[in-house]
Nucleic acid binder design. Structure first.
Length: 189
DNA sequence: CACAGGATATACT
DNA sequence: GTATATCCTGTGA
């Protein structure tokens, strides 16, 4: 299976984000299927790119097909996949995975057994996959990343975003219909 | 359910 | 400089 290419990400985040559902995301062989993402573009007041280039968000303005990893609330790491053109500041926030590979390592890193809680949330999945600031700016088509296309027909649902106050009403959260690994129930809009 | 935890950015004085 | 908000999670009421 050929990995997702830079060309795949060099489109509008609104086209890319729903197609990420069902893709296999591994870091050093640990991870699972993407079941939830959120789209952020440069026009979005909730986006880190909205106010322009800063030290933290520089990867968001970089080439597509790379990772943008930032620290949230001073504690957690969050993984975004950079989309769009070179200076467009578009990215898809990976919010939840269905764990499939390396369950043992994920449980050890997370310090709990419950499969449902290993990767359901942006900070949680970064801890389970050991994604940190070291991964910021790395290409997604080379190690330690593995990113393979979704297989078979999938039902992708769209809903309201969560965890933010500004422009939360934008329906730019995508999830795999019926998945029990979503970080929250998808409220359709 | 409330809230601490604490990096980064912005909006004030 | 201080204050406030943020793409969140674990813990304890």
């Amino acid at each position: 299976m050929t990995p997702l290419t830079r060309e795949f990400f060099a489109r509008s985040v609104h086209a890319v984000a729903p197609e990420l559902i069902g893709c296999l995301l591994l870091v050093d062989g640990v991870g699972g299927r993407i079941v939830e993402v959120e789209a952020y573009d440069g026009e979005d007041p909730a986006s880190h790119g909205f106010a322009g280039l800063t030290e933290r968000n520089r990867s968001m303005f970089g080439p597509p097909g790379h990772a943008y990893v930032y620290r949230s609330y001073g504690i957690h790491w969050c993984l975004n996949l950079v989309c769009g053109g070179e200076d467009e500041a578009e990215a898809a926030l990976v919010r939840a995975l269905e764990p499939t590979d390396g369950l043992g390592r994920m449980r050890r890193r997370r310090g709990l057994e419950d499969e449902r809680l290993l990767c359901s949330g942006p900070g949680r999945l970064c801890q389970a996959l050991e994604v940190t600031g070291e991964h910021d700016g790395l290409a997604l088509d080379t190690p330690p990343f593995t990113l393979l296309p979704a297989e078979g027909p999938l039902q992708v649902a769209r809903g309201q975003r969560v965890g933010i106050t500004r422009a939360a009403e934008l329906p730019w959260r995508y999830g795999l219909s019926g998945s029990r690994f979503l970080s929250r129930v998808l409220r359709p809009v």
